[in-house]
């Protein structure tokens, strides 16, 4: 190993060591050695700062930066578990799962998996918190993933039950046990109000954060949510279970007939009723631009033989 790599490993290890409660550098390395002695080994002091203090500047900047970026992406989780616990969770997560991407956008990409392995951080609200993280990560992804060319009315003229519909890559489908969509919207609105009020900071009140009060009142409720992008903003919309199943089946690449079967499974809707609903859904979804021409790979695929023998819908 070259000298450059050795030095970089040494410095990165120190820089990525969590700070003390007072946001200072820890006096000991992860291996239990003196951090002061460690810093002296590779960093020069100057007439104002010791080696330790110079290294501490980078240590602080690292944690301030990643903690800020992480908090920006998960305000809903913070509202659920509280600011203090969120800070501890952030530290633990980012220590175990430091960024492996050139962009901070991907900082939370491993959070769901990490929380599954460490549910103690979100107990006793495990399900609620997991639902919120799923929604917040879906939001991050929906913001800047690709758009594909939208299917136009002319493309829909030849639709049969064997048609494969491709769904826009930014669409995320979430089946949730809590109405976290409403909660997250409230949290973001509260946060905007708080940040606007910060300029008149003299009268900060110590009442509970409104979103925290809402969390306490939140009851379980099974919901089906689509997270999507429209005109460059991310939106959440609730779907009926049937619409959700249909969309999910199509997203998985199934033919329309298979998606219809799947949508009806366990549904109280009669088949005739479903046909009417499907028309409504398709009208709405195509208006929203949710269907795209990515199949095979940039166009609708129609099985010609099926087209001849099946009724158009």
């Amino acid at each position: 190993m070259n000298e450059l790599k050795q030095l970089q490993r040494r410095m990165a290890s120190a820089v990525m060591t969590p700070l003390t409660r007072n946001n200072g550098m820890k006096p000991r390395t992860a291996a239990g050695h003196s951090m002061r002695a460690e810093a002296q080994q590779f960093i020069k002091p100057n007439d104002r700062l010791s080696s330790f203090e110079r290294l501490e500047i980078y240590n602080q900047q690292y944690w301030f930066r990643v903690l800020d970026a992480f908090a920006d992406d998960f305000p809903g989780l913070r509202a659920i578990i509280g600011a203090r616990k969120f800070e501890q969770l952030s530290l633990a997560y980012l220590t175990e799962c430091p960024s492996r991407s050139y962009t901070l956008r991907n900082l939370g990409s491993r959070l769901l998996a990490w929380l599954r392995a460490h549910p103690e951080w979100i107990q006793p609200q495990e399900r609620l918190a997991m639902d919120m993280v799923r929604l917040e990560w879906a939001h991050v992804e929906a913001f800047d993933v690709a758009d594909e060319p939208v299917v136009g009315p002319e493309d829909l003229l030849e639709v049969t039950q064997a048609t494969l519909f491709a769904i826009q890559p930014h669409i995320r489908l979430l089946q949730l046990a809590y109405p976290v969509d409403d909660l997250l919207i409230d949290v973001k609105e509260d946060s905007d109000q708080h940040s606007n009020a910060a300029s008149n900071a003299g009268s900060y009140r110590r009442k509970p954060h409104p979103a925290v009060k809402k969390v306490e009142q939140l009851n379980p409720e099974r919901i089906y949510v689509v997270v999507y992008r429209h005109q460059y903003s991310v939106w959440y919309r609730r779907l009926t279970p049937e619409a959700f199943r249909m969309l999910r089946s199509m997203q998985q690449g199934n033919q329309l007939s298979v998606a219809l079967d799947y949508a009806l499974r366990g549904s109280r809707l009669h088949e005739s009723e479903l046909a009417e609903r499907v028309k409504e859904w398709f009208a709405e979804w195509s208006q929203m631009g949710w269907f795209c021409k990515t199949l095979d790979t940039m166009r609708l695929r129609v099985d010609d033989s099926s087209k001849r023998r099946q009724d158009k819908i």
Binding site: N2, L4, Q8, R9, A12, Q61, R65, Y102
Partner: peptide, 25 residues
């Protein structure tokens, strides 16, 4: 500058050691 090592990113602009080896790399 540098800012990543072994695939872990600090998202900071960390200073270089001013060595001949580092200049070459």
């Amino acid at each position: 500058c540098w800012g990543s090592v072994d695939g872990r990113y600090t998202h900071d602009l960390l200073p270089m050691p001013y060595t001949w080896e580092a200049a070459k790399i």
